[in-house]
Write a protein that binds this DNA or RNA. Structure first.
Lengths: 367, 367
DNA sequence: CTGAAAGCGCTTACAG
DNA sequence: CTGAAAGCGCTTACAG
């Protein structure tokens, strides 16, 4: 079946093409590189020679002389998480359309791995970096800052680091959380658990502790969600019960531990699950305790999934525009790379509240 | 907070380091590149100068002279699909550990985009490519073949193209489908729908048509699943009803169309959904028709998801080792790149059958 | 329009 | 051990 028996395992070069075409290297370079002007005759000869040899521009060499690699890097916590996978798809498609390659790296929220990732990317001289910074609002951003100072444009996604002078594209987490909480409050719920909330080291976190952590140490997206949650309570004139806000380890297990203390007699009647792991853990825990949804426990989730819609009952969800987030970030980065520099920008994308069937209206007695 | 005020936006070069260290360029190159031998004195001076300047090897230039980019490419249908996202995570982590960058591209099963992706990657001179080839078993693999012939090692994942002389890492789709079907047959089901099966253009596909398509035109993973399904029927001495095998458009909509004709009176009592889209569509369609699972319809799904476990009822699943698939493919590619060439290999990875609650035992009457 | 030369920042032989 | 030179395959001025 092989039409062309493999001959030379190495790629033809510009010199070889020019030789075969019987023209100078510069001329060959001009037609193959698509710049300058050449006679029709020369162009034809070069093109013919290139076709015969199966010439393909060596982008590596091109990058070497132009200083542009047409490659960007993307650093996220976990490529396999549907959230980041969706964002990545958006990034990758738009950069690809612009002729760029996209290098991806997962960090599992580990700052050391993030720093290494930045190093790998800058060593490869990528034209720009898109990163969901690990370590929270006050993370040590020296590696990121250093990349920027050395001329690698960088845009943050999903969250931001304080004092980092870089573009960002984030979701309207505060508004989205406020809307979800409002909705539950309006449905008559008062004991609304938040999984997850800002990590607080102290045993018993007060509302003040939570607000402080949300504004300072926490990853911005997580912190903002707590603030939106608190906003809704404030608007409704209801006090936040800090015991109903998860402050422990931000993992599926942490969620289960949290729920263990919060579900049950006089416990939460609703839970807002802001991460896929929290949704799954909440659903799993509810089932394990024999709590029916929504009769015994209402739930609102973030990060829509096709599964949320076919779940019994269908899960009411704050749907986040993942693809769009990636596309926006990519376009912003591309603009930066092109030298369009209107000063660091923060773009907020809106979520969409999708009302399904996992929230129960509760009749509220007197008082 | 800025410790180092930004000075020159361009990166320091090897020459600058050697100059500052007061040594020759070759010496600086030796210590920074980690090859050859140098005196302790020279090493110290160079290292000090490099640290002062914040020197970072220009991997681009290094690649230019070594001919090695330490970058690979991954081409899949859809990065946002949990299946490929999982595989990608496996690939990315293992290549990263080996110091490689991974460029990713989605094709949406479009061969034209696949060809473009290959072109982009080879132009960038990646050291190797991992690809889930689009277009089925008899796809035109000339672009892939050409890449191999020109010296870019390539490993296929998830599926293979006939006659392409390249490594592959695939799942045991045939065995997995057979096991799922066996299980349903043993539970007493006879009218078992398969969504999805081999695409067949004819209106009314016969069993022979299905087998032929499965062995020739279809994407191997999809074809193999049909064959495993047929194996189980043959073993049980039961005839396959071709009407219960989806042969139309392989999309969520295609699944719904298929199910519309297959559910209902005297219809299927069970469905095997081999893709996430098929699972979601099946679950959605069942709900739309008021069919309870598993009382009215049993289901076995491929591609496990955390949602499958918390679904009511929990979905019985063939769990596929996505991460491992990616890791295996990456290791194989890395070995190829290193020149270890034991001739094209096909690695089969085993799935795991996870018995949950979405299959009902049916009592079988006489006959 | 066309060609020879220099340069991108490394690594690789080659002399010393 | 150390340094000057050549080369990787392009692009970019520079003369003709």
């Amino acid at each position: 079946m092989k039409t062309v028996p493999s001959q030379e395992p190495s790629k033809p070069t510009l010199s070889e093409v020019s030789e075969r075409a019987g023209v100078g290297r510069s001329s060959a370079a001009r037609v193959l590189g698509g710049y300058g002007s050449v006679s029709a005759y020369t162009r034809d000869r070069v093109l013919a020679a290139a076709a015969e040899l199966g010439y393909e521009t060596n982008e590596l060499a091109r990058s070497m002389s132009t200083g542009v690699t047409k490659t960007i890097g993307v650093i996220v916590a976990d490529l396999a998480n549907p959230y980041f996978a969706g964002v990545l798809r958006g990034v990758s498609d738009t950069t690809r359309a612009a002729g760029y390659g996209t290098i991806v790296i997962s960090t599992d929220e580990d700052q050391k791995r993030e720093d290494e990732a930045v190093r790998l990317l800058t060593a490869k001289r990528v034209d720009g970096i898109i990163v969901a910074p690990a370590g929270g609002r006050q993370a040590d951003a020296s590696a990121l800052r250093s990349a920027i100072e050395r001329g690698t444009p960088l845009v943050q996604i999903d969250r931001t680091v304080d004092g980092l002078d870089a573009d960002a594209v984030v979701l309207d987490n505060r508004d989205a959380a406020r809307e979800a909480t409002d909705y539950l409050l309006a449905a008559g719920h008062r004991r609304i658990a938040l999984a997850w909330g800002p990590a607080v080291p102290t045993e018993q976190a007060s509302v003040a502790d939570l607000a402080l952590a949300a504004r300072t140490t926490e990853i911005t997206s997580v912190g903002e969600r707590y603030l939106g949650y608190a906003d809704a309570f404030a608007d409704a004139g209801v006090a936040v019960d800090p015991l109903l806000v998860m402050t422990g380890e931000q993992t599926a297990e942490g969620v289960r531990d949290f729920l263990a203390g919060v579900l049950g007699t006089d416990g939460a009647t609703a839970v807002i699950a802001t991460e896929q792991d929290a949704v799954i853990a909440s659903l799993g825990e509810a089932r394990a305790r024999g709590l029916r949804i929504p009769q015994d426990l209402s739930i609102v989730s973030f990060d829509d999934s096709p599964w949320a819609e076919v779940h019994e009952p269908a899960i009411t969800t704050v749907r986040q525009p993942l693809r769009a987030l990636g596309e926006n970030a990519a376009n912003l980065l591309l603009a930066r790379i092109a030298g369009e520099a209107p000063g660091p920008t923060v773009t907020h994308l809106s979520s969409e509240f999708v009302d399904r069937a996992s929230v129960r209206r509760v009749k509220r007695g007197g008082r």
